[in-house]
Protein backbone atom coordinates (compact mmCIF):
# COMPACT_ATOMS: atom_id res chain seq x y z
CA UNK A 1 0.00 0.00 0.00
CA UNK A 2 2.76 2.42 0.97
CA UNK A 3 4.64 1.56 -2.20
CA UNK A 4 1.54 2.44 -4.26
CA UNK A 5 1.14 5.77 -2.48
CA UNK A 6 4.79 6.61 -3.01
CA UNK A 7 4.67 5.79 -6.72
CA UNK A 8 1.44 7.79 -7.19
CA UNK A 9 2.94 10.82 -5.41
CA UNK A 10 6.14 10.66 -7.47
CA UNK A 11 4.21 10.35 -10.75
CA UNK A 12 1.90 13.17 -9.68
CA UNK A 13 4.78 15.50 -8.86
CA UNK A 14 6.54 14.77 -12.16
CA UNK A 15 3.28 15.34 -14.06
CA UNK A 16 2.73 18.68 -12.31
CA UNK A 17 6.34 19.70 -12.94
CA UNK A 18 6.03 18.88 -16.63
CA UNK A 19 2.71 20.67 -17.13
CA UNK A 20 3.55 23.57 -14.76
CA UNK A 21 -0.14 24.19 -14.15
CA UNK A 22 -1.70 24.10 -10.68
CA UNK A 23 -5.39 24.41 -11.60
CA UNK A 24 -7.77 22.01 -9.88
CA UNK A 25 -8.63 20.16 -13.09
CA UNK A 26 -4.95 19.59 -13.81
CA UNK A 27 -4.30 18.40 -10.24
CA UNK A 28 -7.08 15.82 -10.62
CA UNK A 29 -5.87 14.76 -14.06
CA UNK A 30 -2.34 14.22 -12.72
CA UNK A 31 -3.64 12.19 -9.79
CA UNK A 32 -5.67 9.98 -12.14
CA UNK A 33 -2.65 9.44 -14.40
CA UNK A 34 -0.53 8.56 -11.35
CA UNK A 35 -3.13 6.04 -10.18
CA UNK A 36 -3.29 4.50 -13.66
CA UNK A 37 0.51 4.16 -13.82
CA UNK A 38 0.60 2.60 -10.34
CA UNK A 39 -2.11 0.13 -11.38
CA UNK A 40 -0.05 -0.89 -14.43
CA UNK A 41 3.37 -1.06 -12.72
CA UNK A 42 2.23 -2.78 -9.46
CA UNK A 43 5.19 -1.75 -7.28
CA UNK A 44 6.49 -4.30 -4.83
CA UNK A 45 6.34 -3.04 -1.29
CA UNK A 46 9.62 -2.17 0.34
CA UNK A 47 10.37 -1.09 3.86
CA UNK A 48 9.76 2.63 3.87
CA UNK A 49 10.98 4.91 6.62
CA UNK A 50 9.29 8.28 6.30
CA UNK A 51 11.32 9.66 9.19
CA UNK A 52 14.49 9.21 7.12
CA UNK A 53 13.14 11.13 4.13
CA UNK A 54 14.51 14.61 5.00
CA UNK A 55 17.98 13.21 5.69
CA UNK A 56 17.89 11.18 2.47
CA UNK A 57 16.79 14.22 0.45
CA UNK A 58 19.53 16.34 2.03
CA UNK A 59 22.14 13.70 1.20
CA UNK A 60 20.74 13.41 -2.33
CA UNK A 61 21.14 17.18 -2.77
CA UNK A 62 24.69 17.04 -1.45
CA UNK A 63 25.51 14.13 -3.77
CA UNK A 64 24.05 16.06 -6.74
CA UNK A 65 26.16 19.13 -5.98
CA UNK A 66 29.29 17.01 -5.53
CA UNK A 67 28.58 15.26 -8.85
CA UNK A 68 27.97 18.61 -10.56
CA UNK A 69 31.33 19.98 -9.39
CA UNK A 70 33.00 16.76 -10.56
CA UNK A 71 31.32 17.02 -13.99
CA UNK A 72 32.42 20.63 -14.48
CA UNK A 73 36.00 19.98 -13.36
CA UNK A 74 36.41 16.92 -15.57
CA UNK A 75 34.61 18.63 -18.46
CA UNK A 76 37.18 21.42 -18.49
CA UNK A 77 39.97 18.85 -18.27
CA UNK A 78 38.64 16.88 -21.25
CA UNK A 79 38.06 20.09 -23.23
CA UNK A 80 41.71 20.99 -22.68
CA UNK A 81 42.82 17.52 -23.86
CA UNK A 82 40.64 17.72 -26.99
CA UNK A 83 41.75 21.24 -27.93
CA UNK A 84 45.43 20.53 -27.32
CA UNK A 85 47.20 20.31 -30.72
CA UNK A 86 49.21 17.29 -29.55
CA UNK A 87 46.10 15.43 -28.30
CA UNK A 88 47.78 14.10 -25.12
CA UNK A 89 45.48 11.14 -24.41
CA UNK A 90 46.58 8.06 -22.50
CA UNK A 91 43.56 5.77 -22.94
CA UNK A 92 43.05 2.48 -21.18
CA UNK A 93 40.61 0.35 -19.22
CA UNK A 94 41.02 -0.04 -15.46
CA UNK A 95 39.11 -2.28 -13.08
CA UNK A 96 37.45 -0.54 -10.13
CA UNK A 97 35.71 -2.48 -7.38
CA UNK A 98 32.30 -1.04 -6.65
CA UNK A 99 32.37 -2.53 -3.15
CA UNK A 100 28.59 -2.44 -2.88
CA UNK A 101 26.18 -5.30 -2.42
CA UNK A 102 23.01 -3.93 -4.01
CA UNK A 103 22.59 -3.77 -7.77
CA UNK A 104 21.13 -0.28 -7.43
CA UNK A 105 24.30 0.87 -5.71
CA UNK A 106 26.54 -0.57 -8.43
CA UNK A 107 24.32 0.94 -11.12
CA UNK A 108 24.41 4.38 -9.52
CA UNK A 109 28.20 4.19 -9.07
CA UNK A 110 28.55 3.30 -12.74
CA UNK A 111 26.22 6.17 -13.62
CA UNK A 112 28.28 8.63 -11.60
CA UNK A 113 31.49 7.46 -13.29
CA UNK A 114 30.01 7.56 -16.79
CA UNK A 115 28.35 10.97 -16.39
CA UNK A 116 31.68 12.65 -15.65
CA UNK A 117 33.53 13.32 -18.92
CA UNK A 118 36.79 11.44 -19.33
CA UNK A 119 35.71 8.21 -17.65
CA UNK A 120 33.08 5.71 -18.67
CA UNK A 121 32.08 2.23 -17.60
CA UNK A 122 32.45 -0.27 -20.43
CA UNK A 123 31.44 -3.41 -18.58
CA UNK A 124 30.31 -4.51 -15.12
CA UNK A 125 31.48 -7.89 -13.90
CA UNK A 126 29.35 -10.35 -11.97
CA UNK A 127 31.13 -9.50 -8.73
CA UNK A 128 30.41 -5.80 -9.15
CA UNK A 129 33.79 -4.88 -10.62
CA UNK A 130 33.43 -1.94 -12.99
CA UNK A 131 35.70 -1.78 -16.04
CA UNK A 132 36.25 1.92 -16.63
CA UNK A 133 37.60 3.35 -19.86
CA UNK A 134 39.59 6.52 -19.13
CA UNK A 135 40.96 9.17 -21.44
CA UNK A 136 43.88 9.67 -19.05
CA UNK A 137 44.44 6.28 -17.48
CA UNK A 138 47.45 7.30 -15.38
CA UNK A 139 45.73 10.01 -13.37
CA UNK A 140 42.42 8.11 -13.26
CA UNK A 141 44.06 4.95 -11.94
CA UNK A 142 45.68 6.97 -9.19
CA UNK A 143 42.43 8.50 -7.97
CA UNK A 144 39.83 5.82 -8.87
CA UNK A 145 39.85 3.91 -5.57
CA UNK A 146 39.61 7.04 -3.46
CA UNK A 147 36.80 8.50 -5.60
CA UNK A 148 34.85 5.26 -5.47
CA UNK A 149 35.15 5.12 -1.67
CA UNK A 150 33.77 8.65 -1.42
CA UNK A 151 30.99 7.88 -3.89
CA UNK A 152 30.04 4.73 -2.01
CA UNK A 153 29.86 6.56 1.32
CA UNK A 154 27.57 9.20 -0.16
CA UNK A 155 25.29 6.68 -1.90
CA UNK A 156 25.03 4.57 1.24
CA UNK A 157 24.02 7.63 3.22
CA UNK A 158 21.16 8.20 0.77
CA UNK A 159 19.80 4.66 0.79
CA UNK A 160 20.59 3.33 4.23
Amino acid sequence: MLAYIRLVVICWLIYLALTANLELSNLIAGLLIGLAIAAIIRPVSQPLAIGRLPAALFNLLRYTIWLGIDIIRNGIRVARIVLDPKLPIRPGIIAVKAGMKSELGVALSAHAITVTPGEQVVEIGEDGTMYVHCLDVVSSAASAEEAQRKRRAMLERIFE
Binding site: I89, P91, I93, A95, V138
Partner: peptide
Amino acid sequence: VKQALRDDLA
Protein backbone atom coordinates in the same frame (compact mmCIF):
# COMPACT_ATOMS: atom_id res chain seq x y z
CA VAL B 1 41.06 0.11 -27.67
CA LYS B 2 43.62 2.05 -29.66
CA GLN B 3 46.85 3.20 -27.99
CA ALA B 4 45.74 1.46 -24.81
CA LEU B 5 48.24 1.69 -21.99
CA ARG B 6 46.43 -1.01 -20.07
CA ASP B 7 43.28 -3.09 -20.44
CA ASP B 8 42.07 -4.82 -17.29
CA LEU B 9 38.93 -6.10 -19.02
CA ALA B 10 40.97 -8.05 -21.57
